[in-house]
């Protein structure tokens, strides 16, 4: 269980707590698998999508999750709002709470923004971190773990023995941070693969391996997670050119062919086809990228359900 009442970081979850989220998501999947997609558990409750950064897919995923639990959803995006006129995070959150929000899903460009919302005494609502700066994106890691688990049923209760590569812009990636924490906590071996400029300083204190050589690692991976590389990084001298990056760290057909028989290809999206991942790799049989999207809704349903203490999950889908 998420004892703090918030999901700000993977550190808010024990290993058992993480499995509880994954189990709940699986249960929700079973119930909503048929014709009936909607449960009444959060009927009359209000959640807010508080998005200070553009992110259509994450916002839609949370919105779909809340609606499938019958919650009312208020969407707030910073563009065109009073935030662009200088209203602070604190004032915005307090305003939305005054409108009845019980749970705030926040995406913000500043690392720690979700923690500030939860811990500064500004609001009483539950807070779910939907990505804060370069810090964390815990529901992304949970949906990735869910997806890996579905493909390796022999590791249902323990990821020990799975080797998972996270490739690309580790330095700026909240997805990488959350995944490194969660997957290692579940028992997996995680290797971060990137040019040295995109590996954070002080990473030796993380429970992961580091590699600068994708080709040396590719054959040993059970899952490979390709991170989006923003071409702006090139201007900051993190790498010389897109071509050189793609050659060293892009996932093309040759590397896909070198992968283990059951190995899967993951990407949190949105993809830069042709840069970190080739079109053929993204669309290959190994690719589970669309499954990740579906699983995202389930995992987010589970998080909302567990945080908001909804009524017991019905064993069968019910008409609402």
């Amino acid at each position: 269980m998420i004892t703090s009442g918030h999901l700000l970081s993977i550190n808010d979850l024990t290993r058992d707590g993480a499995f509880e989220v994954l189990d709940t998501a699986r249960e929700l999947s079973r119930i909503t698998d048929g014709a009936i997609k909607k449960l009444p558990t959060l009927r009359g409750r209000t959640v807010v999508n508080l998005f200070f950064e553009d992110s259509t897919r994450t916002r839609l995923s949370f919105e779909a999750a809340a609606k499938r639990l019958s919650a009312d959803v208020i969407n707030f995006s910073a563009k065109g709002s009073s935030v662009s006129k200088g209203e602070s995070l604190k004032d915005t959150a307090q305003t939305l709470e005054a409108m009845g929000a019980e749970l705030v899903i926040v995406r913000h460009g500043s690392s720690g923004a979700a923690a500030r919302l939860a811990q500064s005494g500004w609001i009483k609502s539950h807070v779910v971190n939907a990505g804060d700066g370069m810090h964390e994106h815990p529901t992304q890691a949970l949906l990735d773990a869910y997806t890996i688990r579905e493909h390796f049923p022999e590791h249902d209760r323990d990821f020990t023995g799975l080797r998972i590569g996270i490739v690309g812009d580790i330095l700026h990636s909240r997805v990488a941070r959350s995944n490194a924490l969660l997957l290692t906590s579940l028992g997996a071996q995680v290797v971060l693969i990137a040019p040295p400029t995109l590996i954070p300083i002080g990473v030796s204190s993380w429970p992961v391996e580091i590699s600068y050589d994708l080709d040396a690692e590719i054959e040993s991976l059970d899952a490979i997670m390709m991170l989006r590389v923003q071409s702006e990084r090139m201007n900051d001298a993190f790498f010389p050119s897109e071509r050189e990056y793609a050659r060293g760290y892009g996932l093309g057909a040759e590397r896909v062919n070198a992968m283990k028989e059951r190995a899967i290809i993951m990407h949190p999206g949105p993809m830069n086809r042709g840069l970190e991942i080739s079109a053929s790799s993204a669309d290959s049989e190994r690719s589970v990228i669309l499954e990740q999207v579906s699983n995202g809704v389930l995992v987010r349903m589970a998080v909302l359900y567990l945080l908001m203490g909804g009524t017991a999950i019905p064993t069968e889908g019910v008409l609402v």
Binding site: S111, H135, I201, W206
Partner: peptide, 18 residues
Amino acid sequence: AQMNEGAVSSRLGLQGWP
């Protein structure tokens, strides 16, 4: 830069100040 660069800044995702 936001805070001292090192293991803590990397974990917190705050831009490092070497």
